[in-house]
Amino acid sequence: MLNISHLTKIYGSKKAVDDLSLRIRPGVIYGFIGHNGAGKTTTLKSCAGILNFENGEIEIAGVSIKKDPIFCKSQTAFLPDNPDIYGFMTGIQFLNFISDIYGIDASTRQKRIDKYSEMFELRDSLAQSVSSYSHGMKQKLAIISVLIREPKLVMMDEPFVGLDPIASHLLKGLMREICDKGGAIFFSTHVLEVAQKLCDEVAIIRQGKLIKNGSMEEIAGDAGLESVFLEMEGETQNV
């Protein structure tokens, strides 16, 4: 579904991502772990087509994002950690706008908006201006806007930040549902317990370089993801 090979992204003289290669198969929830500034967001944004990159290749469903960005973007959805969405629109205007851009027909969008807005308890607030929403409500609206598109690949940057426990629980279930239908999830998180419970595969990144990746069993083993991550961080710092 997503194939990243030798990705390098440079800001000025600093390499934010350095020769990173990853492969995310359909049906997999893939966790992306690293400390602040490790290059997780840069990688996700590059995969979403928001950032250009200097070297390497990103392919979505076998198509290069550099060669056909429109096709790649039509297959994916990106959810940033702090979704700044249009404050000048109402919630329903925003969802309709997204539906128009992704060509979702009227009856389908109606059903999906009803379903997910009920699920995330946002339906009553859809007529309100987005500028009056709390952070959590904006996050929920952004999640609904992702779900109504039914994308094949969902990339999320810290998706659980700002969500209430019920919405968090719902999102985890929906992430699994997307994968069960043949989609894939690629998300970053600092909450290692969540990553261990939710992810099928995981990658650990430090200073833009891939430190380790593989199935959760391979990486976490019996010690648990947190112990492994802290041990690896310690080793890297000692080196």
């Binding site: 109402t90 128009d100 009227a106 109606q110 339906r123 009553d124």
Partner: peptide, 19 residues
């Protein structure tokens, strides 16, 4: 700012340019 109740109305699909 008073809470405006959401009333479901029939939705129409627009093209990308119009949206």
């Amino acid at each position: 700012v008073k809470k405006v109740a959401y009333v479901e109305r029939p939705m129409k699909q627009k093209g990308v340019a119009a949206a």
